[in-house]
């Protein structure tokens, strides 16, 4: 059932559209930043860096929209959670785009040197982080609680892969002293991808909160299962 006030309904729909747009932009920034690194394409890196500004602006716009909705319509129940979730998801998407920018800046530096043979090893990690982000955004879009919870479960796998890869790069760095700087860049990129996974988990948690009102943050996912 729609709200009696069309303007309230429209404002909530607009807020949701803004979050989805921001999600697409962050996802794309991450994709072109990684592509810029792996394909050694500095133009792509520059593009990811430049487009982060748009994501930042969109985050501020979503906060403004959320604030206006709270001020004008005093949302309650699901509506209130929609607004709170949108604002918090926007914060996480902005951080994801920051991670993409950071990856692109490191990629741009690495592109000035010889290609690091081990660089392609970041691609599976990126794929996993991207899947998590896509799942989190799909869970938000469709109100899919199970999918949202699964993002947290998948993140454990990403964390393990991250630790394993950092360990490998650290030992590889010891054997190739001339490429120390590039290995350090790669280790930081791996760290950025791990953070993307964490932000995706946060987005999933907000999707659960929005849909069910359950706060599953900080390991409280069991409470959701108990109440179900």
């Amino acid at each position: 059932m729609a709200h009696i006030l069309d303007s309230f309904e429209n404002a909530l729909n607009e807020l949701r559209r803004s979050v989805l747009t921001m999600g697409s932009m962050s996802l794309r920034n991450l994709e072109i930043a990684i592509k810029g690194c792996v394909d050694r394409d500095t133009d792509l890196c520059n593009s990811a860096i430049a487009e982060d500004d748009e994501v930042n602006e969109l985050e501020m716009s979503i906060d403004q929209q959320g604030m206006e909705i709270m001020l004008r319509y005093q949302p309650v129940a699901t509506d209130l959670r929609k607004v709170l979730a949108a604002m918090k998801i926007a914060g996480n998407l902005e951080r994801i785009s920051d991670e993409a920018e950071s990856i692109a800046r490191r990629g741009r530096k690495m592109n000035k040197h010889h290609e690091l043979a081990d660089l392609h090893l970041i691609e599976p990690l990126y794929e996993q982080a991207r899947f998590q982000l896509e799942d989190a955004l799909r869970a938000y879009t469709n109100g899919d609680i199970d999918l949202a919870v699964s993002v947290g479960e998948k993140d454990d796998k990403l964390d393990r892969a991250h630790r394993k890869l950092v360990k490998y790069m650290t030992s590889a760095m010891a054997e190739d002293s001339e490429a120390v700087k590039d290995y350090l860049h790669v280790i930081f990129i791996i760290r950025c991808l791990e953070r993307v996974g964490d932000h995706s988990v946060n987005i999933g948690e907000e999707a659960v909160f929005m849909e069910s009102s359950h706060d599953i943050r900080h390991g409280n996912v069991d409470k959701l299962e108990e109440e179900e």
Binding site: M1, H3, I4, L5, V76, A77, T78, L80, S213
Partner: peptide, 19 residues
Amino acid sequence: MFTRPEKKETEDYVSGKFG
């Protein structure tokens, strides 16, 4: 009642969907 009502009618009313 205003954050997670159990009944849909309650949710619709407090959210301004009818009244």
